[in-house]
Design a protein around this nucleic acid. Structure first.
Lengths: 202, 202, 202, 202
DNA sequence: ACTGACGGGACAACCCGTTTCT
DNA sequence: AGAAACGGGTTGTCCCGTCAGT
């Protein structure tokens, strides 16, 4: 927070501060001065690294949000032997130990998607790229599960994967609207039940 | 269209124009001048009916969006003998004959929820009120279905209802992010399958 | 406050409400809607009695403030046998039993004079007319005092009268700036001493 | 005049222009665009130096008006051997060589006091601070005069000082209301006579 | 590489006055 | 005589981006 001399550190400080502000207020309402204040930097620093506000927003999507989703939801699935169990664990972890702050602000990717998809095509494309990766990650895990015999083979993998991502975002969005962890749990219960229907009969 | 001296007509014109702008740009980015231009009214009219922009937004949620959700999703269920079929029909109708515009802008309730829930507590409460009604509507329909023997009795009705709403919003949000009707169809397929798992074995 | 049917009552209600708002906020910052709210009337009533806001303000000066000054400061002097004693009593009464509200808002004539004299010539003329009457009232009282032998004859009556009015307004203004009754008393003490220097040696 | 990149110069230009506008129209009616036009600056400059209009007004009181009063009325008294003569000279100078503009707009401190004291507590406090300094300056000068034997010792110094300030402001206010230099002279005559009554008998 | 003063446009809020109708 | 919907202009605030300097 004090004095990031390294130019790359500066860039990362900007991205992180921008992410925090966007998370709280959305992209359009995010204030550059507030971002700079949080990063401890001045206008000049920002416009050295990014041509304008939109470019900063794009970088937040491409780098910060992308890696957040990858780390939290995609990577864990890649090495999982039993994808359904891994998904179940992820959802359960989310619905149990989610911080108040996360409930309040929801999934930043979803927030940005709903705000910006119809406002700025480039935003939409970048957000969709992450959703696409996410769907693919789950889809491939499900396929591996089919090969290993844990997942039913009479399902449409792409459809199920897309539905899981959509349901997850819908659940987080509903919890955000209700600002309630208990609503999150109740709603997530449905998704857990759905996952069980994908399990191959042993 | 020129001079609707009827104050109630004016109010409705303002609400409708505000709804259209909010739908396209979100609440914070919605421009009052654009709203007034679309409504064919001047500043004075707006200030006469609403003390400020937020009050206009609240009224849009309470009246326009509320009745939209009630008419499209809640009322059809109230008279339905077979709730699962009614839900299925609604989703299929949505995933088939949805206009490009609807795909592009998504569900306004969801858009507003993601943008405003963490920004303004009053917005969140009003949005959540609609979600709550929606969950209740589906929940009661499922209960009636249980009584009539169409719905399995070993499910948690509240949980299923909440999940259905969340999944629906998630699906519409995903389609908006992808700006693609085919993604909508693929994703909705998962929800239709989930609904079938609720059906009582005959 | 309830329903003044008589048109003259309506006019007076408007003037009184306008006086109250002007007293609190000044003329330019006085809000017509607030005035109407306080009077329990609508726009139409105001524009039936006055062509515009300025005309209302002029009427407040000519009628409400004029009669206030006349009643409080001029009439008492007209019948007084000993003008210096009457002035002294008036000042002492003011510096003792002045309400907090009067200290806070000061003399409305002075407030209006300082705000509007350089902004609107018609306002200045009307305010000055009252000051002129006030000076004349004191001047004539001093002259009668000279004839009766209570007031020194080697003073310039017009100058003394003008100074007394100016000092009074200055004192009330200073008390308003300090929002303090004790400052009012201390400052008024000087004026009382000045008045004694006008007394004819017995 | 074109581009004073020196931030301190810009600040002073803003304050001076604001002072001129406030002097003419009062604080509430002062137009920021007019101030910026007079200062040859754009909105951004103002917002950079002051968070809002009120802060600009406060700075005008604290810096411009404060130093104006100090230089014109307080400093001259500090070095004066005979305070009564110094006060007399100041008043005579004022009542003789006052410009038409000064007569028209009066003492800005008084104008602001009457307009803002009851509207904004912070304004009142700042204005009162100057009045307090002014009273103290005259009070201390009178005390020194007492020690040096030029001023009567049987007077209440604080009371006399407060009265002198109040009377001065009252006189300038009356002249403003009358928009007349001759009224100023006639009224000031009374104050000069009062000052003579403070002189120690030789 | 970074600072910070400043330009300049856009928008919400505010409010006076008009007009129609009762 | 008065109520009330509405027109329309003004203004303070906000904020993105630029540029000269270091």
């Amino acid at each position: 927070m004090s004095s990031p001399r390294n130019p790359d550190q500066t860039r990362r400080a900007l991205l992180q501060a921008a992410y925090n502000e966007i998370r709280k207020h959305g992209f359009q309402a995010a204030n550059l001065d507030a971002i700079l204040g949080e990063a401890g930097l001045a206008k000049g620093a920002l416009y050295h690294h990014f041509p304008n506000k939109k470019a900063l927003g794009y970088a937040v999507v491409d780098e910060v949000i992308m890696s957040e989703i990858v780390e939290k939801w995609i990577t864990p699935l890649e090495n999982a032997e039993r994808p359904l169990d891994s998904l179940r664990d992820g959802i359960q972890r989310a619905s149990e130990c989610l911080s108040d702050e996360y409930i309040r602000y929801g999934c930043t990717l979803n927030t940005l998607a709903q705000e910006m998809a119809s406002v700025d095509e480039e935003f939409r494309v970048r957000v969709n790229r992450i959703y696409s990766l996410w769907r693919d990650g789950i889809g491939q895990a499900l396929k591996r599960g089919q090969v290993l015999g844990h997942v039913r083979t009479d399902i449409n993998v792409e459809s199920s994967a897309a539905f899981i991502v959509a349901a997850l975002e819908g659940i987080l969005g509903m919890a955000k609207a209700a600002n309630s962890l208990s609503i999150l749990k109740i709603t997530a219960e449905g998704l857990l039940q759905y996952l069980e229907t994908l399990r191959a009969p042993s």
